[in-house]
Design a protein around this nucleic acid. Structure first.
Length: 436
RNA sequence: GCCGUCGUAGCUCAGUUGGUGGAGCACUCGGCUGUUAACCGAGCGGUCGCCGGUUCGAGUCCGGCCGACGGCGCCA
């Protein structure tokens, strides 16, 4: 006995099944009835197809069922595909068999929606055209990151999620009860990766990262995915080149694989293609300050970090992401070294995305000076004893090494033209939301 | 942590000077043989965020609290 073969909707819409009699399965996206005809827009993972149910073409029981079955019910329909200009997409299924698998209760998400309500109903809103498109693009981006590093001979290396101390400084850790002790959810993979490069030389990883920052903005999540790399023998100029190539590769992959999804999201495919093929400029922090002063009359005192308003203003003068290097040493984390050629600045960089999406990458060369790092830890009130294992890495054959972290959701939000980073991850966690 | 906006039907919102709470959508019933978030008619649907105060009378005025969202700071 042969099993029924079901055809995917995108196959039908590309014209491969015209005049064929086939079976399709999926969920009711929209439904309208008009006495003796019912129009059902049927949704599957690949697209939306209009199914036209006429009273004369099937049994009365099936027709009445088609008429009353509500949105998001799961159904199987059989019929003949016809090319028809009146149907959205240009093709429709003329139904002769209508079968309900599960008749849905009234779907809570209707015409009028608020962002908060959609977050409450996230488990159902995943079915929307918008999130369907975002999640497909996110998958391309995640795949591209793995491919980029593997193509360049990086080894995937995993760090513990439960960590004994903080990496980035500040009270931004989620505390976890660990038997009779305390531990913290990972804030960065970096310190462990630094141990790995003395064995594997080039490593990367992508995984969940946790920051208990009390940030309530459209760019922050408490749980987000960070794609990090760390490599021995690499210094800052080379590091920024790798970061640029990675982002360009991600963009090329999305443009190649996800044009229909970008259109659903109202993103300009040509613009992204252009960015993917452009050089990303590198400027210093000093240069950024002078651009702001000369063009926008924004005077940032030297030594202050660039704030959101300043980053956004700066990006008005660029159409691609920009790498900014040599931030003031004082405002940087303890492991970032001083640039011998530009005293008081660090061998570090941020990559800032266009259009207000902010910092998508942060990275640096790593200090090899144990006394300097101890001093910086003491200044921020940290217990340097927790870091003894980390200092060992400088005691046994230390070499120059560097790394950076890319915020996956920030990149997804930028590429998908999203208003809010919450839509860049299936189930967002923020300061006030951890359900569903 | 600071600042701002908002809490009224399942959802989105209106509600005038304080006088028995409305609309659209959803859902139910009826009508319609080509709809495009269909349309037409009827019905169902309420702890007006919570507590207290003023008043003959509070969704509306006053005080306090709670919650949500956004902006800044910090970060990716």
């Amino acid at each position: 006995m042969s099993e029924t073969k079901f055809v995917a909707i995108n196959e039908i819409l590309s014209g491969n099944y015209t005049d064929k009699h086939i079976s399709v399965r999926g969920w009711i996206y929209r439904t309208r009835s008009s006495g003796n005809i019912v129009f059902i827009n049927l949704r599957d993972a690949t697209g939306i197809l209009q199914a036209t149910v006429k009273r004369d073409n099937l049994s009365d029981e099936m027709f009445e069922e088609a008429k009353k079955t509500l949105i998001e019910s799961s159904i199987i329909v059989k019929g003949t595909i016809a090319e028809d200009k009146r149907a959205p997409g240009g093709y429709e299924l003329r139904v002769d068999t209508f079968q309900v698998l599960q008749s849905a209760e009234p779907f809570p998400i209707v015409e009028d929606q608020s962002p908060e309500f959609l977050l409450d109903q996230r488990h159902l809103w995943l079915r929307s055209q918008k999130l369907n498109a975002v999640l497909k693009i996110r998958s391309t981006i995640v795949g591209a990151i793995h491919q980029f590093f593997r193509d360049h001979d990086y080894i995937e290396f995993d760090a513990p999620v439960l960590q004994p101390n903080q990496c980035e400084g500040g009270a931004t850790l989620f505390e976890v009860k660990y038997y009779d002790n305390k531990t913290y959810l990972s804030q960065s993979w970096q310190l462990y990766a630094e141990a790995a490069v003395f064995s594997l030389e080039k490593v990367y990883n992508m995984g969940p990262t946790f920051r208990a920052e009390k940030s309530k903005t459209s760019r922050h999540l408490s749980e987000f995915w960070m794609a990090e790399m760390e490599a021995a023998w690499v210094k800052l100029p080379k590091l920024t080149e790798i970061a640029k190539k990675e982002v360009q590769f991600i963009l090329k992959q999305v443009v190649e694989k996800n044009s229909p999804e970008l259109q659903v999201l109202d993103q300009d495919v040509e613009k992204l293609k252009h960015i993917a093929e452009s050089e990303f400029p590198t400027i210093t922090y000093d240069k950024a300050l002078s651009i702001l002063k000369e063009n926008a009359n924004m005077k940032v005192p030297w030594g202050k970090d660039l704030r959101t308003i300043e980053e956004n203003k700066l990006m008005e003068y660029f159409e691609t992401p920009v790498v900014v290097t040599n931030y003031p040493l004082e405002i940087m984390a303890f492991y970032k070294p001083e640039d011998p050629k530009k005293p008081k600045t660090a061998l570090c960089f941020d990559m800032i995305a266009p259009s207000g999406y902010g910092e998508i990458i942060g990275g640096s060369q790593r200090s090899e000076d144990i006394d300097y790092m101890k001093k910086r830890l003491r200044e921020t009130g940290e217990d340097e004893e927790n870091y003894e294992w980390y200092f060992d890495l400088r005691r046994y054959g230390s070499v120059p090494h560097s790394g950076y972290g890319l915020g996956v959701e920030r990149v997804v939000a930028w590429i998908c033209n999203l208003d809010n980073i919450k839509d860049a991850i299936p189930f967002p966690r923020t300061m006030n939301r951890f359900q569903p």
